[in-house]
Design a protein around this nucleic acid. Structure first.
Lengths: 107, 107
DNA sequence: CCTCAAGTCCAAGATCTGTTGAACTTTGAA
DNA sequence: TTCAAAGTTCAACAGATCTTGGACTTGAGG
């Protein structure tokens, strides 16, 4: 299995993070990661197709929002809280908070 | 001149705001609006073409980030701070802050 | 070895974005 | 009434984004 590329902390850019979080599907993924801690793709298959999921998870990873660690045939995705907080203190928590409000308002 | 449409406060959505701010040109516009308070298009003509500017200013307006008030042949654009802060307290200031850091790091 | 489950890769298509030039509208002032 | 300045509209285009189906890879277990 190919090396999975993650940007280094200093390579995480604001526009990229905002962009990756400006998609509803990805915002939903981030919300779930926030509650679950980490998750494999099975956790999101109700939200979109497998192929499509690979795409969205890649976007989040490339933006520096998530980290992916392969274990066996599975890949565990989690939020890069420390790195994001070093770079943009408070931003992730704030966005997650507002997104959660919005999500519960829909329900 | 046609009525200029602005979304109502409750119609401002997180994903829309993040999306409108995930473009470098628009982030730059927001930064300038933050310092200038309000501005006409003349203030941004060094950053992009007139036509293109209309496009970006429209995106910001439609996302609920800016308000536009026509005075004579000019249009004054300003940030909708109160509305944004009512909806997403602290978000705009935080993003502006990080964007400014990033901008000065480039220089 | 064979097979299954987890996930990726690839090519294609539909749609959305950002950008442009040329023509237009509106208003203020000469 | 004519003119210029401020800004919009429109059609067009290149490139990015999202989504899909089908074939593929990789690792674990029987």
């Amino acid at each position: 299995m190919q090396r999975i590329h993650h940007p280094r902390r200093e390579q995480i850019h604001l526009a990229g993070v905002l962009d990756s979080l400006s998609d509803p599907t990805r915002l939903e993924i981030v919300l779930r990661l926030d509650t679950l801690g980490e998750a494999t793709c099975a956790e999101f298959l109700d939200a979109c197709s497998k192929t499509n999921l690979t795409y969205h998870l890649r976007r989040l990873r490339e933006a520096g929002v998530t980290r992916v660690s392969p274990i066996g045939t599975q890949r565990f995705t989690s939020l890069r809280r420390k790195d994001l907080d070093a770079r943009f203190p408070g931003l992730l928590e704030m966005i997650i908070g507002f997104a959660r409000e919005a999500a519960s308002a829909d329900a």
